[in-house]
Design a protein around this nucleic acid. Structure first.
Lengths: 345, 345
DNA sequence: ATGAAAGCGCTAACAG
DNA sequence: CTGTTAGCGCTTTCAT
């Protein structure tokens, strides 16, 4: 083992004939240390190959400069963009990210929360798993005053900030768009209603129907995991409907929409002529499927940025959870061929 | 701040009228501690709400039970699968993962390596960024005897293990497949040749050509970043070739293949009749594009599992980098419609 | 502007 | 099987 021994601030202190205290302060650019002394300290640190011992530091100072992130999955274009946004802001502020994923399982999310707690993150960023029923596993954070920010898949809680888009509005708009294109039997492929994103999208859908005097039909609601399998299942369901097939499908995400389209196309259904389609998220696959999928776009990067900014502000005592309860980001409807019954673009 | 004070092993010790040492050992299930005492310790820990202080522990023991992971990007189906495999094995062995991404930039990779080093990870798992030229930034790890395992995008280094598939062979096979389907002017969309994966795939492609007495044509080689833009560029290039267009394209990844196909289709080129296509990685989009894309499949999950297993074994002194230099995983050719010139499946 | 001393919470000898 | 002792490397009063 070529284990050169670690250089500590004491080594630097000895080397410079000053005290460890001064070195510690100097390294942190403490103002009470002579500028020249500081320079010498940094030079010595570099020369000796010093690296700070975060454990010793954290043990003492009780700050870790680490933020925990729990996402529902990693394998998602949207999530990856969020993480990129988070990392940018965090790094710029001197924080590091510990990323973990729940794989959509509440059980794993709970385990991750435990780990984060034990790693003593300074703050936590969470997008809930598909089937998380309550947030008891974050209670320890609240109790200790460790700030928790929810993003996208949020949970309303008086002690934490949420970063979201107006899912209700976006769903309302996209459903209206389908109706404007002459659709009236619109199927909705939704997700677990425990999750705000899916509950709100369903509400928006229902509201749009109601505002056009279209009666909500229970049979046209398909709640699922919104994955490939779910999309295929939805298609099978549609194919079994016989004459009462929908003339449009609004899916709460792009994946389910795309796999549903795929299956229907194989069965000879024409899109959008027979059935129009709309998704949600503007995933890259929405531009690969033919016809290209109408969807809702919102910036994961901005969301990540907003979430971390809010968290760090809070950590610095600049903002307060009591005043900032939620941050709403912009979203936009992207109309593509899959929903244009009249003309193909 | 509702900052209840932290419970330490001393609190437990006092509570139970035993020494801190015994508590420390008991918590770790040290065999020399009476089974009954252990039970009482755990009960007390739970009762008092104890949580271990990893900093104090790491400071003392010099082990962090943390593995660093540096991937080229997060936003990739393959990478996400790898991470899932890694997490499974790591967690089961009591290790945690710190994940970071270089966003394909060598500069960011270097910064990440620094961070990992300062966080004192017990071991490192790396898939290199697109343009990393050397691995000087991992030198500190080698020097300190911290094991580094490369996976997928590896770098041959005498002190570290690599986990890969036989890229040469896979590319050779897929090119042969195209030739067997009657193609002879096969274009290759490749990546940076600094990366083993792309260099090996190019070699496999060339070897297949040579074995069929087809001369390698420099004009049919397009080196790029293999992203959406690159695919589109490749398509433009093909369209400009006039009569000398290729009759097949083998892309070193699915993304470039798919976006190239998309552009060509818009221009009226028929696939596979005019130009056959093959990609690499079996990304979900390969099954969305029409016609479905022939590609090479290999399990990211298995790769993640293998990499972490190897790393942990090494940490436990079970295996040795000097004996295990590389682990080769299985891959398979998946033939779909995009390459079947004769009949559509 | 700098230093001395006292821990932060845990673990690793070494003793019993 | 259990306890005593002595730090790990750093930060933080409190002095000077």
């Amino acid at each position: 083992m070529p284990d050169e021994k670690e250089i500590t601030i004491y080594d630097i202190a000895k080397h410079l004939n000053i005290s460890a205290t001064t070195v510690s302060r100097g390294l942190k650019n403490h103002p009470t240390i002579n500028k020249n002394t500081r320079k010498r300290i940094f030079a010595a640190a570099k020369e000796l190959g010093y690296r700070s011992n975060m454990f010793a530091s954290s043990l003492r100072s009780k700050k870790t400069y680490t933020l925990g992130v729990i996402v529902h999955r990693l394998n998602s274009y949207f999530v990856a963009t969020v993480l990129a946004g988070m990392e940018d802001v965090a790094n710029r502020a001197g924080y590091n990210l510990i990323i973990s994923h729940s794989l959509e399982s509440a059980e794993k999310e709970i385990a991750n929360a435990h780990t984060m707690f034990n790693k003593r993150v300074d703050g936590l960023l969470v997008s809930l798993a598909y089937d998380t029923e309550n947030i008891a596993h974050f209670e320890p954070f609240f109790k200790k005053g460790i700030p928790v920010v929810f993003f996208d898949r949020i949970y309303d809680h008086k002690e934490s900030t949420s970063v979201v888009i107006d899912n209700f509005r976006a769903a309302y708009d996209i459903t209206n768009h389908l109706i404007d294109n002459g659709c009236s039997r619109i199927m909705h492929i939704g997700g677990n209603l425990l999750r705000n994103v899916y509950a709100d999208r369903l509400r928006g859908y229902k509201q749009a129907l109601q505002d056009h005097k279209i009666k909500f039909d229970e049979k046209l609601l398909f709640i699922s995991k919104l994955n490939e399998e779910a999309g295929t299942e939805a298609a099978k369901l549609i194919l079994k409907m016989g004459g009462k097939q929908p003339d449009a499908v609004f899916s709460a995400n792009d994946a389910a929409a795309v796999y549903c389209m795929k299956k229907l196309k194989e069965a000879g259904i024409r899109i959008p002529e027979d059935i129009a389609f709309a998704g949600f998220n503007n995933d890259p696959i929405s531009k690969i499927i033919e016809p290209n999928l109408t969807t809702v776009n919102y910036s994961g990067y901005d969301m990540g940025e907003a979430a971390v900014t809010s968290l760090i502000n809070h950590l610095n005592g600049i903002s307060n959870v009591k005043t900032t309860n939620s941050i709403i980001l912009r979203s936009e409807l992207i109309i593509r061929e899959s929903s244009s019954k009249n003309k193909s673009l």
